[in-house]
């Protein structure tokens, strides 16, 4: 059993489990599934700076901070107890494309060749980690949610603004991955 769990899980197992998070959170305490809000609660808790957007009682949303702390711990557990030493399988077309940019290490889900402490001080690493992270934080809050809040919770409750947001996530992603990222990777 544990050997099976160590293998990468197929989408038809993972997807439904993620979908079940929606009713579980609703039934446990009437909480709507969402993750990016946790970033805002951190701002409200640590540096509200008198900005109206951060002036609220963040303690009422502590559940959300515990939820993301759990996700981090889940990562620790998965990598320690359910570690799969096999090389990550990736589409051959992508392997070929990434090799051009010197990305050849498939030992980790986070690409070691790009995301490491040394490369943080290179143009490529700085743009990808600091710049990319900034866009994620700014964009999700501007959009009012991320993949979990809009694509999963929003679509599950049939809210058309969430469909608009999800389509824009995909348009942005496709544009970046195919047309802009090649330039960033060449830095």
């Amino acid at each position: 059993m544990i050997e099976i769990l160590k293998q990468p899980w197929p989408w038809y197992v993972a997807g439904p489990l993620i979908g079940l998070t929606v009713p579980v959170l609703l039934i446990l305490g009437n909480k709507s599934f969402g993750i990016s809000s946790s970033l805002r609660h951190v701002c409200a808790a640590c540096m509200p700076a008198n900005i109206p957007f951060f002036k609220y009682d963040w303690k009422k949303e502590v559940w959300n901070l515990l939820f993301v702390a759990g996700i981090l711990l889940g990562g620790v557990i998965a990598v320690n107890l359910l570690f799969n030493p096999a090389r990550i399988e990736v589409h051959p077309g992508l392997v070929k494309e990434l090799a051009v940019y010197g990305i050849t290490d498939y030992s980790n889900l986070v690409p070691v060749d790009i995301m490491n402490w040394q490369s943080l001080f290179t143009a490529r690493g700085l743009v990808m980690m600091v710049g990319g992270g900034f866009l994620v934080g700014f964009g999700t809050r501007y959009a009012g949610g991320c993949t979990s809040g809009h694509a999963i919770m929003g679509l599950s409750s049939l809210q058309w603004p969430s469909l608009v947001a999800t389509i824009c996530f995909m348009i942005g992603g496709f544009t970046m991955a195919n047309f802009i990222l090649p330039f960033i990777l060449s830095l």
């Binding site: 389509i167 824009c168 348009i171 992603g173």
Partner: peptide, 10 residues
């Protein structure tokens, strides 16, 4: 915001 997040996500 959706487009900006999409850029960051990729």
């Amino acid at each position: 915001g959706g487009l900006i997040f999409g850029f960051g996500w990729a």
